[in-house]
Structures are given as structure tokens and as C-alpha cells.
Design a binder for these strands. Structure first.
Length: 422
DNA sequence: TCTGGGGTCCTAGGACCC
DNA sequence: TCTGGGGTCCTAGGACCC
């Protein structure tokens, strides 16, 4: 059996954690640049605020309904997420961290004297007590069914946060009530096609023939179909696989016009991407830089250039040389840039790097330097050691007007609790 | 009348997830 | 005026190998 533990309104709940005055109030968290809504408390959902809705459309509503607004604070959310996952690991030896706010637990072989449902309630209570984040839990025989169960746990009040889909009757009821578009693996594109075919619920889908599913929706569709029928196709995967590509990109806070400013942004993105690369013990054989101009549609300037490295590398210094070269070839003078990004590709384990007879780079030296940079930055926090190209005035930085403090990761931001004066 | 049977690698495009 | 930022997998088709 599998349990899916899903944090409720995760980013909004993190903001509330250190600010209980927000309980009962609508809370929203905005994307980078405070562009659109990416998390909502239940009160905010009740006001009709949509996921992904642009913030400027909502300005009046925010004021009228006294909505608490936050810029994304990914450092805070990442730290709270780690704490939640750490609590979950006390309840199962097999935990798959599926996303920042979700984890699958294998319940096989676990001693649950009062049954799975009671066990799940203990999990939820413990996460609440230790971290303060509300969670919903779905339990079922497959991950896809556990997803449906957790969805019901969240949506249907009588479940009080835990939904257990084990008997055939429970499963049938859940499948009948599950719109096809809510099934894990059936997305925006497939759902309308299925509805056109007369398949509007998960139940209908499980009653299609296997051949038809396979023909129309290929192997992934067939796996979803089998999982909904109770056959396990996806196991709990504890070790996250090394990334095959690493992207770092940002929309700028304001349009940027000079090469130096765009290059500074690209240098920062390259450094961040290279650090992630080293953290997973890999090296990249290609680097792509892209830039986007202002506006949208066909008139918008989009440039991209990829370089292949002669020897795969994890050195920020070396990767940045290629990034700079790529930027030089896509940068157009007179253009106003609103976004740029760096993508590392053709990623391989560092131990598999094929050296070259004609190599000109002192790789040991680079490696030692990167190790020192990473360890100092990790100890001190932030980018204390960085390349000169990253410094400067950061005119490209996104604006985050509603950023909350990093309560749990920065000494400067630790919450001060005042004793009540006598 | 007759036309083998296996592979690999690469890319573009389409779908999905959070 | 303003609309995020990451990822994955699969398939088809073309080019190549023996």
C-alpha cells in the first residue's frame, strides 16, 4: 500500500507558520517578479482567485478583501519542506520526495496496529505538531489511486484529511466521482480528447479496452489505466535520479539593454546551474544561453545559442566562458531584454568524463577551487565567494515587494518573541 | 513470383508533472 | 505596462551500422 502525503496550500501555509494573525485571512503567494498567483489559502480560493492568475488583474480585489500578499520565498519553503520530509521518514523506511510539498510512502511491512487510516492520522498529527504544516493523506494500492485518495482527503470534509481507498467499493466510488482531467497523468490536452470520446470520469477510463488505451495514448496512458485498476506500475523511488538537464532562468525586474547587464545575469545563472551540477556529482557537455526581448507574440526577439564543450565540465569558470561566447552571438544591440536563461545539457557523472589528449584546462585546479567555493558558501550561507562577473549592480533582479523573512535559515531573520510586560 | 532482420543515435515535437 | 520557473518521458522519422 502507498500513502501520498500532500501539504495543504503549501506556500501559503509556510507564510502563515510564523504569522498566526494570517489564520482565517485570505493569503496568496506570487511567482517571481510578483507576476501571478502560485499559491492560495482556502479563503483566497473561495474569493475566486485562480491558480496562475496575473496579480495586476487582482489588485482591487486584494485591497477590498484585505488579502495578505507574499512574494515567493523559496528558501523558506525549501527549509520547511525538508522538515516535513524528515518527519515523514520516521513513518516509513521508503519515502519518495515527489515534489516540494508531496511525498509517497510505502506502507508495506509496516506495523500498523490500528490500521492504515489511524496510522495516517498519526502522521498528519505529527507533522502538524513538529512542523506546523497541515497535510492531506491518501492511501491506496497504487500511486495513481493514492493521488485520487489524497485529492478526496483534501476536498471532502467528512474525510478530515485522510482518505483510504482499499475496498473495491471505495475505489469504484472514488473513480466514478473523479473527473478524467483530475487523474494523475491525464493533462490539459488529453482530457478534452477523452471527453469527446465519451470518457468523462476515471471510472469510464478504466472501462476502456487496454488495446484502445494503448493505441490512443501510448504506453504512459496504458500505465495510468493499469494503475487505476489496481495494478502497480510505479514503485516508490527513493533516490532522486540525477538531473539530465539543469535550467536556470529569470524574468528581469525591468527591461535590460546593455550587454554587461545581461551578461551579469547570465553569469549568475551559470554559477547557480554549475553549483547544482556539482552537488549531484555531474559534469555537463553542453551549455545553452537564451535571451528574450520585451512583449510577446511573433514580434518578440528570441535568441538562443548552444555550445558543446570539448570536455564535459563542472567548473563555473569554464562553463561561463562558453556562456559568454553564446551570449555574444545572440545579443543584439538596441534590443530591450526581459528574460534570459542558461541550460546545461548532456549531463554525465563526473567520474565518466572523457578526457582529451589536447586539453588545455587544468581540471584539478578548477575542481579544487570549486570545492573551496562550494564549501565556504555552504558554511557561511549565500554566495560569499563568487566570480567577478556575477557582482555589480544587478539591475536585472526581479522585484519581490512582499518578501517575508527567512525565519528558519537566516540569523538576521529569526523571529523575536517579546515577553509580556508586567 | 521474388525484396532480411537486427540494431543505434539524434532531433523535433508533443504530452505530462509540480 | 504588468502573465513563473523548473523538470520528465515517449514517439516518429531520418540517418547510420552490421
Amino acid at each position: 500500500m502507498y500513502a501520498l502525503v500532500d501539504c495543504n496550500n503549501f506556500f501559503a501555509s509556510c507564510e502563515r507558520l510564523f504569522n498566526p494573525a494570517l489564520n482565517g485571512r485570505p493569503v496568496v503567494v506570487l511567482s517571481g517578479n510578483d507576476g501571478c498567483v502560485i499559491a492560495r489559502s482556502n479563503e483566497a480560493k473561495a474569493l475566486g482567485i485562480g491558480m496562475g492568475q496575473p496579480a495586476f488583474e487582482l489588485r482591487d480585489l486584494f485591497v477590498r478583501e484585505q488579502v495578505a500578499i507574499f512574494s515567493s520565498n523559496h528558501i523558506l519553503y525549501g527549509d520547511i519542506s525538508r522538515r516535513v520530509m524528515s518527519v515523514l521518514s520516521q513513518f516509513s523506511p521508503e519515502v519518495e520526495v515527489y515534489s516540494i510539498d508531496e511525498a509517497f510512502l510505502s506502507l508495506d511491512g509496516i506495523d500498523m496496529p490500528y490500521g492504515a487510516e489511524a496510522y495516517a492520522r498519526t502522521i498528519a498529527d505529527t507533522v502538524m505538531r513538529c512542523v506546523g504544516i497541515p497535510v492531506s493523506i491518501g492511501i491506496a494500492h497504487t500511486k495513481t489511486l493514492a493521488k485520487i485518495a489524497s485529492h478526496r482527503a483534501k476536498k471532502i470534509a467528512r474525510y478530515k484529511g485522510v482518505c483510504h481507498l482499499v475496498t473495491p467499493d471505495q475505489c469504484a466510488m472514488a473513480l466514478i466521482e473523479c473527473p478524467i482531467g483530475d487523474v494523475w497523468g491525464i493533462g490539459r490536452r488529453l482530457a478534452p480528447k477523452l471527453i469527446e470520446e465519451g470518457i468523462s470520469t476515471a471510472w469510464d477510463f478504466t472501462h476502456m479496452s487496454r488495446e484502445r488505451v494503448r493505441r490512443l495514448y501510448t504506453i504512459e496512458g496504458e500505465r495510468t489505466w493499469r494503475e487505476l485498476r489496481g495494478e502497480v506500475c510505479y514503485a516508490v523511488d527513493e533516490l532522486p535520479a540525477a538531473r539530465q538537464s539543469i535550467t536556470v532562468s529569470r524574468t528581469f525586474g525591468q527591461a535590460v539593454t546593455t550587454f554587461d547587464d545581461v551578461y551579469e545575469a547570465v553569469a549568475n545563472f551559470t554559477a547557480t546551474a554549475a553549483e547544482r551540477l556539482r552537488r549531484q556529482g555531474s559534469a555537463a557537455s553542453s551549455i545553452m544561453v537564451f535571451v528574450k526581448g520585451r512583449g510577446c507574440g511573433p514580434g518578440r526577439y528570441v535568441g538562443a545559442m548552444q555550445h558543446t564543450l570539448p570536455v564535459a565540465s563542472d567548473s563555473t569558470i569554464e562553463l561561463l566562458q562558453y556562456a559568454r561566447r553564446a551570449l555574444v552571438s545572440v545579443f543584439r544591440r538596441g534590443e530591450a531584454y526581459k528574460k534570459a536563461g542558461v541550460i546545461l545539457g548532456h549531463i554525465i557523472p563526473r567520474s565518466n568524463v572523457q578526457l582529451s589528449l589536447f586539453d588545455t584546462v587544468d581540471r584539478d585546479k578548477h575542481h579544487r577551487l570549486m570545492q573551496v567555493m562550494d564549501s565556504v558558501n555552504k558554511q557561511v550561507g549565500g554566495k560569499v565567494l563568487r566570480l567577478g562577473a556575477e557582482g555589480g549592480h544587478h539591475v536585472w533582479k526581479a522585484h519581490s515587494e512582499h518578501l517575508s523573512p527567512c525565519y528558519t535559515t537566516s540569523f538576521r531573520d529569526i523571529l523575536v518573541v517579546k515577553a509580556k510586560e508586567e
